[in-house]
Design a protein around this nucleic acid. Structure first.
Lengths: 148, 148
DNA sequence: ATAAACCCTGAACCTTGGTTTATAGCAAGC
DNA sequence: GCTTGCTATAAACCAAGGTTCAGGGTTTAT
């Protein structure tokens, strides 16, 4: 059996740089990775599963320190299942909230795009500019629009 | 008419800090905000609309520099509508892609949570630990699990 | 008329998440 | 055995997005 991977192979698999993997190891995210007799990191297929999980947590915005905590719980055996659940549940809630905010903001962007795409866009924008200008003027504030 | 706002009021409205607004101004995000005779920033209702847009773009991950570009286009009048559209469209695509990745990762987190919530979780995790341990051993690598 | 609370600027500082650089030890092909 | 390419560590560096601090005016309530 020769199913192990070098750091470069792993980096390519997960679209990370070798330095990022070094960095993650230094941050304590890869306690499961052992080194061979000359000090090279030797990644097993199970290590890839852990790294996949790390990427998944990272991609959903979990900070390195929290990922480290999670991995550390994993290394402590089945007794930590309740803590892992609690940690992931809290993160899940955060991700769902983030999704909601993202969806909301996306809809606003879409509304703006619709306004810009409207055949009457130019007129709409021009009257908006007039409105803002009038408001500024009413408060004796400078007109913010570029007048060329 | 007394409908203007101080920086502190605006900060509270948008859940930003006063320093963040100062920072944004310094970065060129608030060219529309004028100052009163003693140099205090005076925010009008239209300014709030712009700030709302800025927050919306920021919350969807647009970098400060790009937001600056967008605002700058807005200040240049209706002629820049095509460029604003292009910018927002590109951003929209990025946000949709981000949503997809987030959704994908969320599902994986949910799968992990389901495993941990399973009545047989302990058994599952324990046999996983055994598997990993065997794999490490087969490659003459250290057992990564904490043995207490 | 004075203290407390607010505003300003500029510069220094901070955190996160890496990347780069320098130096050196292995490995594989020719 | 030499070159090329991989690996390692440590430390310096970087960019983004703010925050904090120092020094100094303003406004408001008492």
């Amino acid at each position: 059996m020769k199913t192990t991977y070098t750091i470069k192979e792993v980096a390519e698999m997960f679209d990370l740089s070798v330095s990022t993997l070094h960095y993650y190891d230094k941050q304590g995210l890869l306690p499961f990775v052992d080194k061979n007799d000359v000090g090279y990191r030797t990644f097993t297929p199970s290590d890839l599963n852990f790294i996949h999980t790390i990427c998944c947590l990272k991609d959903t915005g979990m900070p390195i320190k929290t990922i480290k905590t999670y991995i550390s719980l994993c290394m402590q055996g089945a007794d930590t299942i309740p803590e892992r659940r609690a940690l992931l549940n809290a993160h899940r809630d955060a991700v769902v909230a983030k999704q909601a905010r993202l969806e909301e903001s996306l809809q606003e962007i879409d509304e703006k795009l619709n306004r810009y795409t409207d055949p009457a866009a130019r007129g709409l924008i021009e009257s908006e500019i007039e409105f803002v200008t009038a408001e500024k003027s009413a408060h004796h504030l400078a007109n913010p629009f570029v007048t060329q």
